[in-house]
Amino acid sequence: MERRAHYRNRILPWLLIAPQLILVLVFFYWPTSQALYWAFTLEQAWGGGNEWVGFDNFMGVFGDGRYWSTVGRSAVYAISATAISMGIALVLALFVDRGLKGTKLFQSVFIWPYALAAPVVGVAFRFIFSPQAGMIGSLNRIWPGIWDPATNGLHALIMVIISHAWLSIGYNFVFFLAALQMIPRSIAEAGAMDGARPARRMLDLQLPLIAPTTFFLLIMNIISTFTDSFGLIDTMTEGGPIGSTEVMVYKIYYDGFKSLDYSGAAAQSIVLMLIVITLTFVQFKWVERRIHYT
C-alpha cells in the first residue's frame, strides 16, 4: 500500500535519516569493505602497506585441514542444536496452545531462557556439567571417566550443543506459540467436526499451517549457532580441548585477535558472511512467496 499523503521538505528527511545512515555506513559497510580488502591482500612484514595477493588468503584457508574440521563441526553444531531446540519448543508450544487451565504459568516460564546472556548460560551449564562437582559428579564416582568435557572433545561438544539448544528454547517457543495462535479457531473446529482428534489435528492441521514460521525459525536458529555460539564457547571450553569445540566464529576471533592473522581472519569472515547472506536471502525469498492463511 503506497501512502498518498506526504510532507514536503527538501532537507528535513535527510536530517532525520542521517544519524542511522552514518552509523550503518561507518560500522557496517565500511568494515565489510575492509574485510574484503584484507581478504585479498597481505600485510607486509616490514610495513609499507598491503600487497595484493588475489585468492591466496582463501587458498590458504581452504587448504588448511583444520579449517575444514571447524566447518564440519559448525555444521554438526548448527544442525543438532537447531533440531533439539526447535523440537522441544514446538512440542511445548503445541500443548500450551491448547489453552488448558493453568497454562499461562507454564507459558511464562517457557520464555525465561530468552532473557539470558549466552555467557551466563555457559557459566551455569559449565557447573551443571562439571565432572567433579554437582550433578554429573556422582555418575563419575560410579564409572570414573564416563563424562569429562575437560579432556574429552566429544563430551565438550555435546555439552556446548545442549547449552545452546536450551538457551534458544525461549525464543523458538514464543514464535511457535504466536504462529499457532494466529491459526483461526474455525479451522480447528471444522477439523474437530470432521472427527479429527486433537493429536490428529496437531499433525495434519497445525503443523502444515505453521510451516512458514518453522522455516523462518530454522534459518534464524542456524544463523544464531554461527553468531551466539561465541559467548557459550568462550565461557565453557575456549574452543578446547585441543580445538574440539572450535566453530567458525571462534576460529575467526582466535586467528584475528590472538594470532593476529588479519588476512586469514578476514578471508574466513568473508566465507561466514556469504553463508549468513545466503541463508538470509533464502529466508527473504521464502517470505515473499509465503502463503497467508489468516
Binding site: F28, I252, G256
Partner: peptide, 21 residues
C-alpha cells in the same frame, strides 16, 4: 534497503574490521 540489509551482517561476522573502526 541500506539499513535493512545490515541484518545480513551480524557483529560476529565482521568483528575483525569493526574493531579497527
Amino acid at each position: 534497503w541500506l539499513i535493512f540489509l545490515t541484518l545480513m551482517l551480524p557483529l560476529e561476522v565482521r568483528i575483525v574490521p569493526t574493531y579497527s573502526i
